[in-house]
Structure formats: C-alpha cells, structure tokens
Design a protein around this nucleic acid. Structure first.
Lengths: 241, 241
DNA sequence: AAAAGTCTGTTCGGTAGCGCACATACAAGA
DNA sequence: TCTTGTATGTGCGCTACCGAACAGACTTTT
C-alpha cells in the first residue's frame, strides 16, 4: 500500500539529531526492519535483544491486566525509540510493545546501543531527554484516563497517531482502538460516529482518514497539547529529510 | 507528633545504597529540610533549585488540569528522590511536587547533584534505575485509573503510603485523598467507610490508622503488587538503619 | 459557653460507560 | 454463488461515579 521506498535512518528524529560523527559510528550497525501490524516487539517482562527506531511505523506501549483488559500508556513513532529499559538499567519493563502501524524501523543490537549510551555523549543526552518526554506522555495518559471522555481521548489518540504518520490515513479497526484506549469497542463506534457525522473523519472497515485536523484539535482535551509541547521543548527541532 | 529525632541521610534508600566513598563525597552538601503538609516543593514547569531525598516524609507528584481537577501520578518516599527532571535533562516537568506527609528530607543543590550524576558512577546508575521504577509506578497509575474502582484505588494508595511511612498512621483527610486519586470526596468517604466497617482501617478527622494490612492487600488491585515488585527488582535491597 | 470552622455521612437525580445480545454490512475464499 | 469471517451499528438494562445540597459531629477560638 505504502510507497515501498526504503527509508533512511535519518527519518527517525532521534537519529537525525545526532551529530554526524556519532551517527557515522553507528551507521554500520543499523538493520532495516519491517514490522507488521500487531507484531509484538517485546512481551511484558521479556528481555529485548534490539532497540527499535521507527521511521514511518508506530509502536504502542501497552499494559495488559490479569483479567485481559488493557490500556495504552504511550506511543512511539519516528520521534523516538522502543526499548528505553535497556539503557535505564532495568533491562525489562512490565509493558508490551506492539506494532500499531506497520512499516519500517531501524534496529540496533542491544549491546551496541548500551555501548553508545555509555560513551556519555550526545546519544546519552538525547535518550534521557526523550525518556523524560515519554514520561510526560505517560503521566498525561494517566490523567486523561481519569478525567476525560472517550470522545476526547479518541481525538487525542488520532492526533498522536497522525503526528507520527507520513499521511493522514490510519489502518486501524475500532476494536483495536478500543483495546488501546482501554474502553469498549461500542464506545469507540459511538465516538467515531460522532466525529464522522461532524465531518472530521471518514472511516470504513479498518481504515480511518482524517479530513479536518483543526476540527479534531478543537475537540481534543488539553492532554494532547501538553504532550506535544513537551516533546517539542525537550527534543531538538525536526530537520527535513 | 512524631519523634523529633533527627534522621540520617542513610534513611533514604537511594543514599544508603551508595558506596560509602560516593556517599562521603556528597555528605558535606546535604541540608536537612523540614517539610510541612501541603507544602509545594515545585510548581508545574518551574525550575528546581534543589533535589529532595525524603527520609520519613512523602511527596506526591500531582498533575493539575486547566479546570482545576487533579490526579496523582506517583508518590515519592524514602525510596526515592524528588527532581528527576534535573538529571534527565529537561530541567522542568509539567507536574507539581506536593508534600503529602510531613517530615524531614535531605536536599542537595541542583548543581551538586548534576555534577555527581555526570561522574557516571553508582549515583547515575541508581538514579536511572529509580527513574525506571518511577515510570512503572506512573504507567500503573494510568492503567489503574482506567480500570479499577475507587475502593481498589484507595487500597492501593493506602498501601503505597504505608510502605513509605515509619508507622501505620497517616494524617490525611478524605478530601485530600480525593484530590490525589482524582475522584470525589464522597467517593472516598464511601470507600473508606466500607474499609472501616470491614475492620481494615480506623479513621477520624484527618487521621487514618491501618489495622489490618493483609486485609488491604486482599482487596487491592494487582497494580500495587506490580509496582512493589518492580521497585524491589530495580532497587537494591533495603538495608536496616 | 457560644461561635466558627473543619471533617465526615447521607441523600438524590443525572449520566457516562459497561456487558450483552443481536442486526447489518462488507470482504474474501470455495 | 454461497459461505464464512470480520467490521460496524444499535438497543437495553445496569452500575459506578458525578454534582450538588445539606446534616451532623468534632475542634478550635473567642
């Protein structure tokens, strides 16, 4: 479906923010990696062999409860990296990493990343700042879960996804969105129907197109903006490819 | 009310986990700091001049929405530190740090901590591991907000507080607990009444005593255990004072 | 003792979201 | 074409929680 052009590692914003001397040192170790929708990069509590730098794919960090219900706690796209627990020192996390939007990423062997991190150079500082931005996303998710309606959360989710995609089409069923948001599928159907009737989106069988992004931004709760501003503040300006 | 004995910095578990050579280097810079209930250590977005290592006090990390409603995203006691954004590189965070249980802490000038962090020694690794544990607490809060009842969350909150206190008495009104959990005061009244009728707790006007801790642990959701296990896994065993 | 303030208990109507059941619609394969 | 599977729409009763109002109980101050 997507153009099948091979992306550059520089399409990942963390990598593109590296000084070229650091980037070049890592360049030989990048492996292009194609990720399918629904693929699990890392199970809860499992050791990661690689870290992943998405280019036009999106990875969802999910937490699954014992009773099977789940909730998304953060989303990682080309602004970030999957696998922060490797350099934070814990090696594993209780959450899972699941591909939410298929596409390429570049991956790096865990050892290579740790070695680079321990050089205490730009990569370390970038990764720590990124981690702080991710923390903001997680805390904002906590607050949003507590106080905002399904419709507001759907808007937030759509905008977060949109920010990480090259176009304005998402391939995603309402059922899957419901899993991410931790709500009923019917709740998503209702909220999405409302947005469609308002002309903001258009969807059909696992395919959502955003028609009116400013309209979504008017309906979304403050959580989206807080997260976005914090990412912009903490991470360097996004260079063009 | 509390014994007015002066605590040792070693009552903070991060500090007590430091090799003595590193601890001694910092020792001259610790300032004993007394914190009153409700005191705001750091406003949202404000630059911190100090980091705080609680000894028997508890600090709550709260996020406040534009409409005034709020939610606790994590709690910091003698196992941790307030001010992670200083070494993560972002300098500020969108959340506030508010004293939830009065008592002492030791504080350190921001510059001193950053210098220590940049030595790339035990302190850095400890702080990063602690940060990962804190992330787990935040994500679990997000999931708990989504899926669990007020009563379960109250149990979780009580147990988290209890773990960070020297005794089993908390001085805390239902109103304040409601602010932390991001629910109505009446909801807390109801849940607390239930727990009291079950003989698990006893409370009166801003004073809660836990009578049956195992009983609370039976009612709490899995979120408490997940967070606790992750803290135990990531942070070194707790030495006795 | 009286007054004022604070904390907790209770009630009541309203609503968002849940769980379930089922209907419809579209897609892909035999 | 028929079947099977998947995605979406809808209705219904239920529950947890909300918002507001108010009453009682305890504390502190005067």
């Amino acid at each position: 479906m997507n153009k099948s052009t091979i992306p550059s590692p520089l399409q990942n914003q963390l990598l593109s923010a590296l000084p070229s001397i650091d980037f070049e040192r890592l360049a030989p170790h990048f492996e292009l990696f194609s990720m399918a929708l629904g693929e699990v990069l890392c199970e809860s509590g499992e050791l990661l062999n690689y870290v992943y730098f998405p280019t036009e794919s999106i990875v969802s960090l999910l937490y699954q409860l014992e009773d099977g219900s789940s909730a998304e706690i953060a989303v990682v796209g080309n602004e970030g990296i999957v696998g922060i627990s490797l350099f934070m020192g814990g090696e594993t996390t209780p959450s899972r990493a699941v591909v939410q939007s298929a596409g390429y990423s570049y991956r790096l062997k865990a050892q290579i990343l740790k070695k680079e991190f321990n050089r205490i150079g730009p990569m370390m500082h970038l990764l720590l700042r990124y981690t702080q931005a991710l923390i903001t996303q997680m805390t904002q998710t906590a607050v949003c879960n507590r106080h905002h309606s399904v419709e507001q959360q759907l808007c937030r989710w759509l905008l977060l996804s949109l920010d990480r995609l090259p176009d304005n089409d998402l391939r995603m069923t309402q059922e899957l969105i419901a899993n991410m948001l931790g709500v009923r599928r019917e709740g998503v159907t209702e909220a999405a129907g409302k947005l469609q009737r308002a002309g903001l989106i258009e969807y059909s069988r696992g395919h959502i197109k955003v028609l009116d992004r400013p309209g979504l931004e008017k309906r979304v709760c403050e959580c989206y903006k807080v997260v976005k501003l914090e990412f912009d503040r903490l991470l360097p300006a996004r260079p063009q490819f």
